[in-house]
Computed example of a mutant assay.
Amino acid sequence: MTTASAPNAIDSVAGLAADYWRTDIIDIEPGRIHVRGYPIQELIGQIGFAEMIWLMLRGELPAKRQAALLEAALVASVDHGPHAPSIAIAKMATSCGLPLNGAMASALNALDDVHGGAGQQAVELFHDIEARMFDGASLEAATAAGVDAFIAAHGKYLPGFGHRFHPVDPRAGRLLALVDEAAQDGVVGGRYAAIGRAIEALLSGRKGKPIPMNIDGATAVIYAELGFAAPLARGVFCLSRAVGILAHAWEQSGRSERNKGPMPRQLPYRYTGHATRHLTQPESAAAP
């Protein structure tokens, strides 16, 4: 490589690397940090964490009432007790010697389709029902068709409705009341709240008993009303539940328990395998 060509080659490689790691989110140089174009020092002390989440994910700052709705969803989903799998995993991992970051990572990895994915799935269901309404179906007809299609594809469990522990989820009603207030004031449209309630009515009619919306359904209403893409409903839930996970892992770290299992050692599990059996001596190994 000649001396004259070297700077051009370096510039080419630098340009390739810069394009390879391109981002619209953050711009950093020595002594300078801009988040979505805003100098970080102008954001610090001026916006809340919910607004920062919105800015990072959406590219613009939310209106105050939009941020308040997002924050309500974040607050409501923080924790659901040590029997929740993600929290239990954090406690067990901590007792096995993992530091806080390791316990949090172990717990967050459990937030998949079954435990943690219901919010995303509910938003997807709401969007499907909305699309059927755009095609001309009434709210009731679109809801019935959307629910039937979801059950046919995924099974009888409908994300966001009913709860294995709470007859009525105490978080859902408060969140929906906040959505109603926001819809009255024009902050959100209210379409997804109507869809959620139409699903409640449909399920109650089919089951012959109330099947109320739960925390996943209510937060899904909020995320959909605020325009978050369905996968972000799961991502934002993970941000919220990480707080509970951290709190329980930190609490556990102050205890002397080691190798905490999924249940007290005084409680036996049920063995359902073979009765006691023994190896028989192979013929080839028998004495002559």
Results as ranks from 00 to 15, higher is better:
A6S: 07
A9R: 09
A9G: 02
S12D: 06
G15I: 06
D19S: 14
R22H: 12
T23E: 11
D24S: 11
I26N: 01
I26M: 11
D27C: 04
I28P: 00
P30Q: 07
P30R: 07
G31P: 02
R32F: 13
I33V: 15
V35R: 02
R36A: 08
P39V: 11
E42T: 15
I44L: 06
Q46M: 00
F49C: 02
A50R: 01
A50N: 02
A50Y: 00
I53M: 09
W54Q: 03
M56F: 12
L57R: 12
R58W: 00
E60Q: 15
A63K: 14
K64R: 14
R65D: 15
Q66V: 13
A67R: 06
L69N: 03
L74F: 04
H80D: 09
H80R: 05
G81W: 13
S86P: 05
I87T: 15
I87Y: 01
A90E: 10
M92G: 09
A93L: 11
T94P: 01
L98Q: 08
P99Q: 08
L100P: 00
G102Y: 04
M104W: 06
A105D: 03
L108I: 15
D112R: 02
V114I: 12
H115L: 00
G116E: 03
G117D: 04
A122V: 03
V123P: 00
E124F: 01
E124R: 13
E124C: 02
F126S: 06
D135R: 14
S138D: 12
T143H: 10
A144T: 12
G146A: 11
I151V: 14
G155V: 11
L158Y: 01
G160V: 04
P167Y: 03
V168N: 09
A172G: 11
G173L: 08
R174I: 13
A182K: 02
A183W: 04
Q184Y: 11
D185T: 10
V187G: 15
G190E: 07
Y192A: 05
A193L: 13
A193M: 07
L202R: 14
S204I: 00
G205R: 15
G208N: 11
G217N: 07
T219N: 10
T219I: 14
I222M: 03
F228I: 08
F228D: 06
A230D: 07
A233I: 07
R234S: 05
R234P: 02
C238W: 04
R241N: 09
R241C: 06
A242C: 13
I245T: 10
L246M: 15
G254W: 05
R255S: 07
K260V: 13
G261D: 14
P262L: 10
M263D: 12
Q266K: 10
Q266F: 11
L267M: 14
T272P: 00
P282G: 12
A286R: 15
A287M: 14
P288W: 08
